[in-house]
């Protein structure tokens, strides 16, 4: 479903990704790990369609279409969801209004009817339960005054509501305490299905204790330098990233 080929990207003239390739099948969970500055978050931003990056080479194919040719809205409609590392606060827009607008906008662009209010509310109730998001948070403005953990839970709540084909979790575990981590990951696990793939970007192994990946990739110097099964994550946890850097240097 996702094919990234030889991706090169730069920011303000500096090359951040240099030849990244990655393939994911439907229903698979992949983890991308790597030291700070390896290009992890750049990858997430590129998938989301931020225009602060310049793609100099390579391609991204999603469900058979050229993802890079789509703008941010079109990607969301196509089924790409990014759980942001730093979700933005939008004062004055209530979470509910935001989600209803989002869902109906996607449906409209697909030529579907808006979701009936009753169904919407039922779905909200069901999804909120998944991440233990209480009613108060639902009625507040989007992310405004939320704690770090609340913001991340809100991201997974939106993930559940929008039902994407590909969910990219960008450092979703950063800034979470152990309880929040458990809540977030059990939410994600409940959303795993044969159609839905997850790309988990993380610095630490601990999230992968809760969300067990099919494949683990190590990103360093803007490329995938090693891939393996979940044991690779444990190896990294054990040896740290210096080991990768040293091997690369040789």
């Amino acid at each position: 479903m996702l094919k990234i080929k030889n991706l090169h990207a730069r920011v303000e003239g500096q090359e951040i990704l240099c030849g990244l390739s990655l393939e994911m099948g439907s229903g698979e969970v992949h983890a991308i790990m790597g030291p700070n500055g390896s290009g992890k978050s750049t990858l997430a931003s590129i998938l989301a369609g931020r225009d602060t990056y310049e793609i100099t080479e390579g391609s991204i194919e999603f469900m058979g279409v050229d993802l890079l040719a789509l703008d941010a809205t079109e990607r969301a409609v196509a089924g790409v969801f990014i759980a942001f590392q730093y979700p933005v606060e939008i004062p004055g827009v209530s979470n509910m209004n935001f989600l209803r607008t989002s869902i109906n906008s996607i449906r409209d662009q697909k030529g579907e009817e808006p979701m009936p209010a009753k169904d919407f509310l039922a779905k909200v109730k069901q999804c909120a339960k998944l991440v233990e998001l209480d009613g108060k948070l639902r009625d507040r403005s989007v992310n405004e005054g939320f704690s770090g953990g609340e913001k991340k839970r809100n991201e997974v709540f939106q993930l559940a509501m929008l039902e994407p084909l590909l969910a990219v979790l960008d450092e979703t575990d950063s800034g979470l305490d152990i309880d929040a981590l458990r809540i977030v990951s059990s939410g994600v696990n409940a959303l795993r299905s044969a159609e839905r793939s997850f790309l988990i970007i993380t610095h630490y192994q601990r999230l992968l204790d809760h969300i067990v990946p099919d494949r683990v990739h190590v990103l360093a110097g803007g490329r995938i330098v090693r891939s393996g099964d979940k044991s690779l994550a444990l190896e990294l946890e054990d040896k740290g990233y210096d080991w990768i850097n040293e091997e690369l240097a040789q």
């Binding site: 369609g49 931020r50 004055g92 827009v93 607008t101 939106q158 929008l162």
Partner: peptide
Amino acid sequence: EDALFYLRSRGLTRPAAKRLLTQAFLSE
């Protein structure tokens, strides 16, 4: 721009996102 982008990445078209932000701007 971050708020606009966030809304677009959730499937809103640019005009729809601006409309929502306008409404939010006025509502305060």
